[in-house]
Design a protein around this nucleic acid. Structure first.
Lengths: 208, 208
DNA sequence: GTCTATACTGAGATAGAC
DNA sequence: GTCTATCTCAGTATAGAC
């Protein structure tokens, strides 16, 4: 096997945090499944929070690299015009759902971390550069949209995305529901969100 | 004062759960601020989970009553045509944000409970009837939208709503940002969501 | 540099006296 | 109804074996 203690902890914790939630998973459960000693967690990571941080870093790095590469590509393709809104949204969503096929645990965990508002400082650290890159591209794609309105619409988008990643609770699927593939979900979201972003600003908001 | 032990616990716990999160708030902190004994919590509610359940029940009951009343009113006004999508959405969102003015703690807590996926069984118990009533009205307003597509679009909407209620993290407000009132936020959301719901189904999804 | 054994503090829960 | 005492299990800290 040759997997190190550190990697064993990372892999098991990633899975258990994603399945059961961060708070609901005890370090003792992690070390039991990983077959390592409790103190090894604190030796390698320092604390439970820093263990989560390491997991997020490991997964978010390649994810965000792919997102930025797609943003670059779409903007280059469209130059000198701005990239279309649909593609800017797709650049953020598609790598996420593509990753969900190879590493569903991490993606589910990300939905949780985002939804639970766990460690906002850590989230910012790992995602701020990407979000800024994304917001700039969106503002270029929608030059007439006031920045305050753009800010909230992007909040709506990330809220919807994390809802999907967490997996829907709250109500049941309709009778005869047919499961969607990752690509379908991306197109569903892109389609819905693009329509929202293209909408003219509400009258009640404009007259501020 | 004359406030009972039970009510003191409910009020303090509602505030602390909303401010700090459910898991992050200890019962010992609650009973310290409420000035009651630790065992009183378990006497009156049975467990920490059931305390949360009682708080959600107390707040969700009037909230959902107002939502249903609005749905009834909008559908009656439009009859025999279905109520417009905008109003169906508004019937769910407006009472939430109106409540946020009088009882911001509870609304923030609801955002947390929803985002954290805390106790999905409890959420279903308190919100399932409302959600079904809402879904029916939406399906009537959009008779050509396939139920599977409606299902996901409603997920997007609730994800966006809970994101707003939790308060945005992840990135900063733009420079010169002007705070919005509750009514403005409702119209922002209604406007964005209605555009999304009205969008034709994505080509990649339709050809299933 | 890695890892183990063990102890410490604070969490939720419970039994039983009053 | 209320309160004290106590139980188990959580995350954490440290001393020391290899």
């Amino acid at each position: 096997m040759s997997q190190t203690t550190k990697d064993k902890i990372l892999d098991i914790a990633e899975r258990l945090f994603g399945e059961q939630g961060y708070e609901a998973t005890s370090l003792r459960h992690v070390i039991f499944e990983a077959g390592v000693n409790l103190a090894a967690v604190h030796y390698h990571f320092g604390s439970k929070e820093e263990l989560l941080d390491a997991i997020v870093l490991r997964g978010a790095t390649p994810l965000n690299e792919e997102r930025v590469a797609l943003l670059d590509r779409y903007e280059k393709e469209a130059a000198p015009a701005p990239a279309p809104v649909e593609n800017v949204i797709r650049a953020v969503l598609a790598p996420t759902f593509r990753m969900a096929k190879g590493n569903p645990q991490f993606v589910k965990l990300m939905g949780r971390v985002h939804g639970e508002g766990l460690m906002p400082a850590m989230l910012k650290r790992h995602f701020q550069p990407l979000v800024e890159r994304f917001m700039d591209a969106m503002q270029r794609a929608l030059p007439d949209l006031p920045p305050d309105e753009l800010f909230w619409r992007v909040q709506f988008m990330f809220g919807a995305m994390s809802q999907v990643l967490r997996g829907p609770h709250l109500f049941d699927k309709p009778k005869g529901y047919v499961e969607s593939g990752a690509e379908e979900m991306v197109e569903r979201l892109v389609n819905f969100m693009a329509a929202g972003f293209h909408a003219p600003v509400a009258a009640a908001v404009q007259e501020k």
